[in-house]
Design a protein around this nucleic acid. Structure first.
Lengths: 137, 137
DNA sequence: ATACATGCAAACAATTTGCATATTA
DNA sequence: TAATATGCAAATTGTTTGCATGTAT
């Protein structure tokens, strides 16, 4: 998902592509890791006088529902990143810098038959640790 | 991990096996799913006049650190269940009743070599959905 | 008796909401 | 202009902490 696709999606659904909405998209577009609402607001404060958490959260939720962002919960805080809808995959998440590395393996393949009578609505497979560069400290 | 093991562990580490600590253990001992602090307090309120979240949380954390309980985070709330230290495994978690089903497959086996230069500190593999009985609604 | 546990009250942090105003299509 | 977005302030929810008191060993 890139910025223009996301903006089109917004417009098609009757939402307005405001400056802040675009800036939020731009913020996530060039990051390869999960970021929190706090990360985002500190970034936005540099270019706007007043940015409020309510707007941030409203838009993060909107983007999440629209599938523009993906969400994960870590230490009681929600973390967001651009959604790569093109192919299903999972992430290694660095505990230090938050960067992610894509994992192509999806364990669900091995588990489907084990859960034959269960209605699967979702799953999560995440690996935490230190990426190579964060180990050099 | 059963109640008596947990109580011994407490005592060995110099902690006291108080009535509430035992009741908390008893609460989790016969559940096969994750429960929240709120679940626990509603249960305890029936047998105690005053139970406070601070005590609950203090003990849940203690049990978590001691490895008596395992924790997962779901919808901004921490969920706890008895830790089955005997063998490493994962869970299907019912979105309706919270019950879990054990999954023997661990996807980490397939991923180790992909992350050769990464220091893995933990991982999470959880499957969400509806268990067979919760589908009959 | 003494160290650990608890309750109380209050603080915290992340997130959400109502409502009036501002902004985009 | 008509519908949607935003800011403000305040409320909510989940969780944590300090301190005085209570309790298990």
């Amino acid at each position: 998902m890139n910025i223009n696709e996301a903006i089109d999606l917004l417009k098609n659904k009757g939402y307005k592509a405001t400056g802040k909405r675009k800036d939020i998209l731009a913020y996530f577009a060039d990051k390869d890791g999960y970021r929190t609402a706090k990360d985002l607001i500190t970034h936005l404060e540099n270019r706007y006088d007043g940015v409020s958490f309510d707007t941030i959260y409203r838009n993060l939720h909107l983007y999440d529902e629209m599938g523009i962002l993906e969400t994960t919960e870590l230490n009681g805080e929600k973390h967001f990143r651009m959604n790569c809808t093109s192919h299903h995959h999972h992430h290694f998440i660095c505990n230090e810098c938050g960067k992610t590395k894509e994992i192509k393996v999806c364990p669900m393949d091995d588990v489907q038959q084990t859960l034959a009578n269960y209605a699967i609505e979702g799953h999560k497979f995440e690996i935490y640790g230190l990426c190579p560069s964060c180990q050099e400290h």
